[in-house]
Every structure is written in structure tokens, then in C-alpha cells.
């Protein structure tokens, strides 16, 4: 759906995006991560035809952003980071205006208006002046605006910033429900959100795409070997032996007093052996009082490790 090849964007002498390449398939929800100033917003602005790339090619739904800008804009729903709205307009009035600009007419416009107002929970405030709305509501008006023409591609720049936890959950559910028929690219700083919603993650750092994979794989890549700590009561050597038998275990070490043995089991990356360890112990009738994973890394660790260079600067 979206293909980006060798995308570079310079602002005068500063380079915002360097040689970025990625593509997003139809129906994917892709999370776009990166430290502030990494070039996410710039990339999204280019995708939404707000500004052109300095070099490189970008196609959306097979259309070139330079040649078919209008047609692409018709198919994209873009929500800018700052959620710019006209404060003097009322919510419905604004959405109606935006729907008209997107070429929606007559009955279809009215029905879409009703749908997005429901989807985004704007029913209560539909007649309010936008300038009087709280940040959360404004955010939702922005989201409704990007959805109103039922676009193939949604580009959302930090859609959940400024929302309360309930609203974040609501928006997350909404985005998930859109996934079936839409392609979504969303940037965010909330990593747990990405793990929950996105099928794939793009991490950008200093204008480069530094990682692109599913959240699970990214975490797996980074993990390296995993260590488990167990405390078992039983005959020491037999326990060590039993643990060594478990598939995937690299080494077992540890010490203990007469009764309780505290062992550290190291396994190859990726595998969660906790169940296997428990079963091995239970089979022998030993007592177990602790079983923990020591190096369970998260997407946050991935984020920190691939964007580390920038932090050092």
C-alpha cells in the first residue's frame, strides 16, 4: 500500500530523513517509533502530500505522491500531531466542512458524519465550539476528521497523546477495528500501545529507519540468552541433571544449602522454558518456591538499544 524508497528530506542544511526505505502492506497496522526529532513527523507529512521529499520515491496505493497528490490525498486520512482545528467552528460544522472538501455529498456525507461521531464518541459535544473542547475531545475531533471519508490509508501522528487512560483504550480499540479494511501508520511514544495494536514496528533514529519488524521479533532479536532462576527443594545434583535434560537449556549453575537450591538456568534466545522447568521439577515431586525470568526484555529495551547513538550525542 505504501512504498517508500530512498526517501531523503533536507531542510536547508539539516537533514531530517536520510535514505529511508520501507513498505507497508494493505491492512497492516504499523507503529512508527523514534525519539523526538527523529524524522517521524517529516516522513508522515511527506506521505500525506503536505511537503515533497528532497529525493527518493514514495507511492501510496500505487500512486506517486508528486504526480497524483490530489488522488492520494483523497485516499489518505491524516491526523497531524498538533491536531489543528478551527476554534470558531462547531464540531459537526467542522466535520461537515471537511467531508465536503473530501468530496462527500448528500446522504453519504450525512451518514458518514453520524458514523464518525459515534465511533469517536463525539455525540455529547457535537454542537460545541471546537475552541471550548478539552484536549481529549479535540484529539477525537481530529481522529474523526481523518476517518470521515473512510480512507484506505490512515496516517496518525501520535493519536493518543493527551488522552486519559479510558480514551486511550477506546482509541486503541477503534484503530484495531479499522485494521480489517484500512492500512494504518501511527506514531507514538507509548510502547505498550505498539505492542498491543501494531503488527509491525518501524523505528526511526536520526532520520534513518533502524529497525522494522514485528514487536515480538524485535524483542526476540535483542534478547540473546535468557536466564531463569529457580529455587527448588530436593537432591541438588539430581535437580541440576534434570534441568540440563530440558530442551534448549545451555547451562545450569547454582548453589544451595541442605534443603533449598537456588539455580540459574540459561537458555537459548527466544524460548520461554518456565513451563518445561516446572514440569521437570513436578515430575520428580520436588518442591518449587520460585521461578522467574531474569532477562526478559521489552520493546523499551529494543527502542533504547537501537536509538542509543542519538542519546550519546
Amino acid at each position: 500500500m505504501i512504498h517508500v524508497k530512498n526517501l531523503t528530506k533536507r531542510y536547508g542544511r539539516t537533514v531530517a530523513v536520510t535514505d529511508a526505505c520501507f513498505s507497508i502492506r494493505k491492512g497492516e497496522i504499523v507503529g512508527f517509533l523514534g525519539p523526538n526529532g527523529a524524522g517521524k513527523t517529516t516522513t508522515m507529512r511527506i506521505l500525506s502530500c503536505f511537503m515533497p521529499p528532497t529525493s527518493g520515491t514514495v507511492t501510496v496505493a500505487g500512486l506517486d505522491i508528486m504526480k497524483d497528490s490530489l488522488e492520494i490525498r483523497r485516499r489518505i486520512g491524516y491526523m497531524p500531531e498538533t491536531v489543528p482545528l478551527y476554534p470558531e467552528m462547531r464540531v459537526l460544522e467542522y466535520l461537515d466542512f471537511r467531508a465536503k472538501l473530501r468530496g462527500l455529498t448528500g446522504r453519504r456525507r450525512r451518514s458518514r458524519l453520524g458514523e464518525v461521531v459515534d465511533q469517536c464518541g463525539l455525540g455529547e459535544v457535537s454542537r460545541f465550539l471546537i475552541g471550548r473542547l478539552s484536549k481529549g475531545y479535540r484529539q477525537r475531533v481530529g481522529l474523526a476528521d481523518s476517518l470521515i471519508h473512510d480512507p484506505d490509508v490512515l496516517i496518525l501522528d501520535e493519536p493518543t497523546i493527551g488522552l486519559d487512560p479510558n480514551q486511550i483504550r477506546h482509541v486503541r480499540e477503534l484503530i484495531k477495528s479499522l485494521a480489517e479494511s484500512h492500512t494504518v501508520l501511527l506514531s507514538t511514544h507509548i510502547l505498550s500501545e505498539v505492542e498491543m495494536v501494531c503488527g509491525r514496528v518501524l523505528i526511526m533514529s536520526s532520520g534513518r529507519i533502524v529497525a522494522s519488524d514485528s514487536p515480538g521479533n524485535l524483542v526476540g532479536l535483542l534478547k540473546g540468552n535468557i536466564q531463569f532462576v529457580v529455587e527448588v527443594a530436593g537432591p541438588g545434583e539430581k535437580i541440576v541433571e534434570a534441568c540440563r535434560q530440558i530442551d534448549g537449556v545451555l547451562s545450569v549453575s547454582g548453589a544451595g544449602d541442605a534443603e533449598w537450591h537456588r539455580l540459574t538456568i540459561e537458555s537459548r534466545k527466544g524460548g520461554d522454558l518456565r513451563t518445561a522447568i516446572y514440569e521437570a521439577i513436578a515430575r520428580n515431586g520436588w518442591k518449587l518456591r520460585e521461578l522467574t525470568v531474569v532477562h526478559d526484555r521489552s520493546l523499551e529495551d529494543v527502542f533504547v538499544s537501537v536509538t542509543k547513538d542519538e542519546d550519546v550525542e
Partner: peptide, 8 residues
């Protein structure tokens, strides 16, 4: 302007 100019 960003919202306006990203409309068709």
C-alpha cells in the same frame, strides 16, 4: 494549513 493542504 496542514489539515487544509492535506485535504484534496
Amino acid at each position: 494549513i496542514e489539515a487544509l493542504m492535506t485535504a484534496p
